[in-house]
Design a protein around this nucleic acid. Structure first.
Lengths: 354, 354
DNA sequence: ATTTTATTTGGAATCGATTCCAATTTTATA
DNA sequence: TATAAAATTGGAATCGATTCCAAATAAAAT
């Protein structure tokens, strides 16, 4: 590895002061064309790039061009979409993203994560911790502390006691519409699978689902909600119990899944049990993950516009970090869209905006 | 946002020198218990965390505890697995990962990406650019330049002219075994879909496939290879052409897909064309992506151990950055494993290590 | 040609940590 | 108790950039 070259080395070779080299690098106007050319030649010769650490330390900028993205797990397709879009948008604006994956287990303190963010003095943080992490008792305090050091935008429903920008979806209404959709297709016995009812975000989904059930006078078949009930496995288990422990008259004709992932597991189990989708059981997912169009049959689902929200979040953070009138914290609600495919029996590719 | 607090503020309030505060922070032994306690109390009071930028600048450490991860796209499940595992391993070692997603289009220069890495003076870089990016003419020079500034490990087959550590799989042998597997199940007419034959990494896969075809005296049905032939769409198109433009006797009875993603599209199209898997056509994928176990039927595929390689890469980088005898560049080959599921007609869940 | 003004340049201070060295205090030994 | 040795502490230099201020040079005006 070559010994690192600094602005002083460039200055020495060009026989000018370091300040002049800096002016060339920052495109400061007060440099004569002749000097600029001479210095630039040496910079090019060595492919010199100024150290971001040193720049970040310097008083007037105090920016390391970095946004922290807090997500549960990259391979969780929902989080992956957010990270992907956030990073692309950040790059477009000359920023980069530092990844903060939350430990999968319970044995961690959100304050440690927050400390790591603070230690780096980032330009902003994008929090999208998901349903499970939202239940941590230390979360609000930790996020509030984080906000004392950098702007924060959360892609999540509002968290009590946290006064940052929230970009979330009206999942309650969406779920209401999803049930309505199934109702119009003739379904009268429904089941909601995956997630746990007492959880905050799932709360909105469940609320919308139950409200629609009540308003339309439908039957809700209670179903088992596993521990970490957001995985394909929980979908498999739910279906297994739903169709093996009940008699014909108490089985749902349609399933509303907490997420596409849960729906995926459910469909696998339905297939094993020789129940056809949609003829025997209709199913609807949530997230519009890429694989939902490749299931057999293609899954009707709900698009949460996560990429769009990720881009909005990054823009907001970058604006704040560049000092432009820091908008007061706000909550933006976006109506998700029902993507009708074939898993509920309607053979249309059209998109209903709700 | 609170005004930032520094080591000097702590020192002033504790009525000690900044150097003493620093010694407390770095757990230097030469501090009396009394002073340490007094200073620590103030540090705790303000939740003070020293700035990483300042620490990184400092001569003796010169480390910002960051590994750069270069991948084509987070939502590509293969890359996502690598990023996820790399980040988890990095965190375990006290490091964090900075994301470098390659632009999806062709209009970029790898040197720009490399400059961004260099600018940050990272502790190491993990390159896993994939097949398409490997074809860029400027890649070897750019990676070599990068190596002058930080250790580099590539999760890819060796790239001509680049002298870094390579962690790759023996895809040629694996593909040979995959064809053998299909042969033993009675298949005699095969087709390889997805990817483009002239590409470097796909080269290994194609080589193994063709060698097995020849050795076993099988028939290779030539198939269309699309432009960006690594997507589900390319699988759909390939299947469409394969089964609509040929007569019965020239149709494959088994398909070897470049990746699970390609297989996913292929299965969708086969379903549309009312061809049953595995009764009418057998299919085998590659990557063991999580959804491959949820297709109908579950997809037989090849596990490339990407997580394991990502962890190895990060360990290697961290070791190098901590100055421990920088290992000479080496190439590690790992044999992938065939995961037999149901898409080729064998109803076993066992794992054959090759 | 000379003064005034504008442009260009160099030198020093700064950002927030760490570490070396010297000064000081404490403890151990004679 | 005096002296040597060890432990603790403060002050200054350093890392690699940027920017302010003053000095030097060039251009414009008288």
């Amino acid at each position: 590895m070559a010994e690192k070259i600094t602005i002083y080395d460039i200055a020495a070779e060009a026989k000018v002061a370091p300040s002049t080299v800096s002016r060339v690098l920052t495109h400061h106007p007060n440099v004569s064309a002749k000097t600029r050319e001479k210095v630039q030649a040496i910079i090019n010769k060595y492919h010199f790039t100024p150290s971001l650490s040193a720049q970040a330390l310097e008083q007037s900028r105090q920016s390391n061009k970095t946004i922290g993205v807090i997500i549960p797990e990259v391979t969780d397709h929902y989080s992956g979409k957010i990270l992907c879009a956030a990073d692309r948008e950040a790059r477009r604006l000359g920023y980069q993203t530092l990844l903060f994956q939350l430990p999968g287990n319970e044995n961690y303190d959100m304050n440690d994560i927050v400390n790591q963010l603070i230690r780096r003095r980032l330009n902003g943080a994008l929090y999208s911790g998901g349903v499970l992490e939202a239940m941590r008792p230390e979360l609000p305090a930790a996020l509030n502390r984080l906000m004392e050091y950098m702007p924060l935008v959360a892609i999540s429903p509002p968290i009590a006691g946290v006064n940052c920008t929230f970009l979330h979806n009206d999942l309650e209404t969406t779920m209401y519409h999803a049930v309505q959709h199934l109702y119009m297709l003739g379904h009268r016995r429904l089941a909601f699978i995956g997630g746990a009812r007492d959880m905050r975000e799932s709360g909105a989904r469940t609320r919308g689902y139950l409200r629609a059930i009540q308003d339309l006078g439908l039957m809700d078949i209670p179903s088992f909600h596993g521990e970490g009930g957001f995985t394909p496995e929980s979908g498999e288990i739910a279906v297994l119990r739903l169709f093996s422990e009940t008699d014909e008259a108490h089985r749902p004709t349609a399933i509303v899944a907490f997420s596409d992932l849960v729906a995926l597991g459910a469909m696998k189990q339905l297939n094993i049990m020789r129940l056809r989708v949609p003829q025997d059981v209709a199913i609807i997912g949530c997230d519009n993950t890429f694989f939902s169009q490749y299931t057999t049959p293609p899954l009707t689902t709900i698009d949460l516009y996560s990429e769009e929200r990720a881009r909005t979040a990054v823009n907001e953070l970058v604006n704040c970090s560049q000092g432009s009138t820091p908008k007061p914290p706000f909550t933006l609600v976006r109506a998700p869209a029902l993507i009708v495919r074939e898993s509920c029996g309607v053979m249309l590719g059209r998109r209903e905006n709700l």
